[in-house]
Amino acid sequence: MHINMLHEFKSNKIGVIGLSILLFLFISAVFAPVIAPHDPWDYSFNCFEPPSKDHLLGTNDIGYDIFSELLWSLRTSVVFGISVAAIACTIGLLVGVSAALVGGTYDVIVMRAADALLAIPSILVIILIAAYFKPSLPVLIITLSLITWQTIARGVRAQTLSLKTKLHIKAAKNMGASTSYIMRKHIIPELFPLFMMGFVTKTRIAVFMEAGLSFLGIFDPSTKSLGVMISYATHYLYLDVWLNWLLPPVFSLSILIISLAFISFAVEEIFDPRLRRNNVTQI
């Protein structure tokens, strides 16, 4: 791909906004242990304290500092989202490329397995697994990754099949390049845009799913998660605590997902010239 991605991204307003928000949230999440004013598991404070200098967002029903809890919850969401996306995209990429290059029975088996998995609603699988096994965070990350790689694999396979017929690949082959060499040096770099888009989309889905699952009470109740915060806060709306307790996690979750969506749009626009508003193509 002969695109200066950084330059293109800089000139894409939506992308810049999305990336700025994401970076801000990412830094908050990564440095949560440093930024958080209190231990998020310390419930020695008074219950339902209003926002103050000491507790920026007040305290909740048990006496946790809501601001500290929010930062740690954001950390869980970001870790969950990125981990699921990384594993799912890696599996998808390997499966897709290998299926296209190897072909034959392997291709048929792998892609039919992908089709079968596509038909299974992932949320149901997760809930079932949570009911029967210990639903720790790493277990759920791996489970979700294992059931969401198919869309990436299908896209990658289609693109690889198209790339296979390109002249430079044929030339490389004729000059004696091995399949793994072609895969490493030609196919995978060419698939980068697709991988990028898939990665951002999967992160967005995983973040949303983590919040949903923790809202449903799938995780250990002591896990810090935006979904758990929202779930508890909704039970105390009658006490008028929505502004300092419910709104912050809802807002954080929303802007996290929106920022990922913005980045996804931007990446798509950069790599697909047909979507560009101005016709400054760099191909």
């Binding site: 598991w41 419930y43 048990i62 109740p221 002591s222 508890y232 039970h235």
Partner: peptide, 10 residues
């Protein structure tokens, strides 16, 4: 919803 689990754990 209650916090019994978290309190006991602590």
């Amino acid at each position: 919803p209650d916090r019994d689990g978290e309190i006991l754990k602590n």
